[in-house]
Computed example of a mutant assay.
Amino acid sequence: MTTDIPTLRQRLAAQSVIERLLPLGRSSLSSRGVARYLGAKGERIVGSILDSLPPEWTVLHALPIGARSSAIDHLVVGPGGVFTISTKHFGSKIIGVGKHGMTVSGRPVPSIRAAEFEAARVTTLVRERMPLVAPVQPVIAVVEPKQLIIHDRPEQVKVVHAGDLRRWLMQLQPVLTEPELMELDAIVDGPGTWRSRPDVAPGIAARA
């Protein structure tokens, strides 16, 4: 008898958001629902880009983490390291990036801080099994902005236009060996690694 063991590779980009929005339909969405719809669209676009990476890269989408419904948009493991990729689709707006924050049409959003926290959270989980692995790199992929202006680069977070994401990943210098990649692949693809984990710590703003 064959037993099918579910893995996280089976999840689709934006699966968590889509599952919440499907019963509503686009015409019934509130302004908050429209923002989620755009977010889901962005995740699908970035997911398609990441799925085109070579076989030595492991890509997971809508990674469930914590006791509630929070999910990491994308987790990528490859020769260049381990990356949490947060997709941001605000529509055709001007996105500004500074050393400590981001703005959308001049309005501050907590995306940088949230991305830093997300990567630190995954670093902690991975290091429970691989203590010496380098910290996870937080990345924000901005989808279809009117303009993406980098005033100053954040210290930890890489902010990149989604169209440049694949090229940026492929150009990174290798930092992981093949055995390390195999071990990391087994860790991140196991559902038991992620479930029943603490939710967002007090003081951390909701992701935008």
Score class of each variant (00 low, 15 high):
G78F: 01
V143F: 13
E178M: 09
E128S: 01
S111H: 03
H61E: 09
V175F: 04
S70M: 07
K88S: 10
G101D: 13
A71E: 08
T177W: 01
M130K: 07
G163I: 15
L63R: 15
G190N: 10
L169S: 08
T103E: 11
A162M: 14
L172M: 05
V188N: 07
I149D: 08
H151K: 12
M182T: 00
V77N: 04
P145K: 07
V77P: 02
A186D: 02
Q137D: 15
E183M: 06
V76I: 06
F90Y: 10
Q147N: 14
D185S: 10
V82L: 01
R107V: 12
A186F: 01
L172S: 09
K146A: 08
V188F: 04
E116P: 08
L50P: 08
E144F: 10
P108I: 11
V46A: 15
Q171D: 12
L75E: 04
M130F: 02
K93S: 11
R127P: 00
T193C: 00
R167T: 15
E180F: 00
H89G: 05
I187Q: 00
I150T: 04
P64V: 00
I187K: 00
G106H: 10
S92P: 05
E56V: 00
S48N: 13
L53E: 07
P138K: 11
G91I: 01
V46T: 14
D185V: 11
I85M: 11
V188T: 02
Q156Y: 13
I95F: 09
P154H: 02
P110F: 03
S86M: 07
P145Y: 08
G163H: 14
R121H: 13
S52F: 07
V122E: 04
